[in-house]
Design a protein around this nucleic acid. Structure first.
Lengths: 294, 294
DNA sequence: CCCCTTATGTTCAATTTTGCACATGATCGA
DNA sequence: TCGATCATGTGCAAAATTGAACATAAGGGG
């Protein structure tokens, strides 16, 4: 039968697009990938890639083969999950993926508790906007703001948080409502509810800063650049920010705890899930409610 | 990620049961399999097999892993089919599986035509009772006597043939009906319709020979051992055999041409399928009907 | 326009993997 | 009980795979 490692390398090449990227993903030298692809072509007697100047491009046959081989990769990931799930006890590494703001504000500060409770546990925390693929095991457990649709995933709603507008106290004192400026996400987040909510409130008033990073928005708001839509857990504890209540119904988002079914029973993963649920649950809604009427 | 070749070796070990058998199936030395399994255990940090005296026996974790890895093997076979299907033109090898009697009587004698028509085509003909697995690519195309139920397989009825009782002319002349002896399959074929049919006819009369090979039955019948249930295509052309019509409705069996969907469009395979349909179609039902009433 | 980064190809030495020969232990049948 | 067969374990040498260093080429940005 065809060499499975050759197939693995080919699948990676098909996904990554270049020899070098595939090599990085596989943890080998790019030459090795090139040789494996060549070996696969020889074994199948098919021309799978066009060797062009700066990149390998799959041929028709190559694309077909990549399509056929994709389920094999899925199966390989399932095997990895099975391995992780089979490992007994509470010794090992668990990767958590979460939106950066949640990761920083809710999880990171409490990680020390988890370490105390399970000394054998190593945590890898990925704070990324992009939702890590649990199927590809980029993460073992994830916090998401929407319920994921992928098959094989188990999702549980473990909490929610609200957004309000925040600004520097001095800025709010000195600026008439009609002259307020706003701070928003860039266009990549246009579909996010909080972004649409902010834009609706802003109306014709100026949006003076676009940034994809929530911490940047908070920092700008602190220095009086304008008003930013921030989660309560981020804005309320901040002494340099006060809420500005626009009088419209606030927006809230749900927090979903997501895990692959294959891993949902592994002791290691269960421990982390319990921890994450604890991180989120205790009413972080209105901890330090400094309200500024209109 | 886990080494895919290690997984391949492990899957084989799980299926075959022993290092040596797995090694044979993989075409490598048994030592290599042992080393790969050890490597997999080290990588997963799981104990996958109990090394016992004469055989490796999977642990609980090993069985779980084997179950998880099985889909990977299925996917690998799908890749192989894709490769075969992608190969252009009419150059290559096609494996045909068929019941031994059909293979000998209908296919083998006509193979020369196929070779003349497609000189680039190499045929591997497997005449085996056991139905070769098209999913595992033990064969590319198969003739079966029943419609297979496996998913992914495409089956087409391309003909049928009847059974009658046959015996040596002298034997039939000299033996009164109540003293007739019978030749049957051994117990492994007890569920086959022709076997049940024969037993019903034999009734209380003696079954004097049990053999799993149809050619053996024919040879024994020729020398006057008794009556055998033979397909018409085998008994009718034989000058040393005549039909003995028991007056009961004859039994017929269907011939199904089976191929995996992934391969059903490959030119190479299509050519072979057309050939097989031609082999079977032309009314081989009653070519040399020598009838002996009762 | 040039430099910097990134990607692929080539060569060679080091490492890893593999198979072979042989040994041991177990089972089966005569 | 003995011998034959089959399965696994060990040591070693051959073969294959791999990575590092270097070379070439193509964008991209200042």
């Amino acid at each position: 039968m065809i060499d499975w490692t050759d197939l693995h390398h080919f699948v990676m090449l098909a996904r990554e697009g270049t020899l070098s990227a595939a090599a990085r993903a596989l943890g080998v030298d790019h030459v090795t990938v090139a040789r494996r692809i060549a070996a696969l072509e020889q074994a199948t007697r098919l021309k799978l890639v066009d060797r062009r100047a700066r990149l390998y491009v799959l041929t028709e046959d190559g694309r077909r083969l990549a399509t056929a081989a994709a389920p094999m990769e899925d199966a390989a990931y399932a095997v990895e999950r099975a391995i992780k799930a089979a490992r007994p006890g509470l010794l090992g590494e668990v990767t958590i993926s979460a939106p950066p703001s949640l990761a920083n504000a809710m999880i990171a500060p409490k990680l020390i508790e988890l370490r105390r409770q399970h000394p054998g546990l190593t945590i890898k925390l990925i704070g990324e906007k992009r939702a890590a693929s649990l199927n590809r095991r980029e993460a073992d457990v994830a916090l998401r703001l929407t319920r994921p649709a992928e098959a094989g995933l188990v999702a549980r709603r473990i909490g929610s948080f609200g957004f309000s507008l925040y600004g520097a106290p001095a800025y709010l004192r000195e600026t008439p409502p009609s002259a307020l400026s706003f701070i928003a996400y860039d266009a990549s987040m246009d579909e996010a509810p909080q972004q649409q909510w902010l834009k609706a409130i802003a109306g014709r008033r100026a949006i003076v800063l676009l940034t994809s990073d929530l911490e940047n928005q908070a920092a700008a708001a602190r220095t009086g650049v304008g008003l930013a839509a921030l989660p309560h857990f981020l804005g309320d504890p901040d002494p340099h920010l006060v809420r500005f209540d626009p009088g419209r119904s606030e927006i809230t988002r749900e927090i979903w705890l997501v895990v692959h079914r294959d891993l949902s029973r592994a002791p290691l993963v269960r421990a982390v899930m319990q921890f994450l649920a604890r991180c989120v649950k205790p009413g972080r809604q209105a901890k330090n409610p400094v309200r500024t009427p209109l």
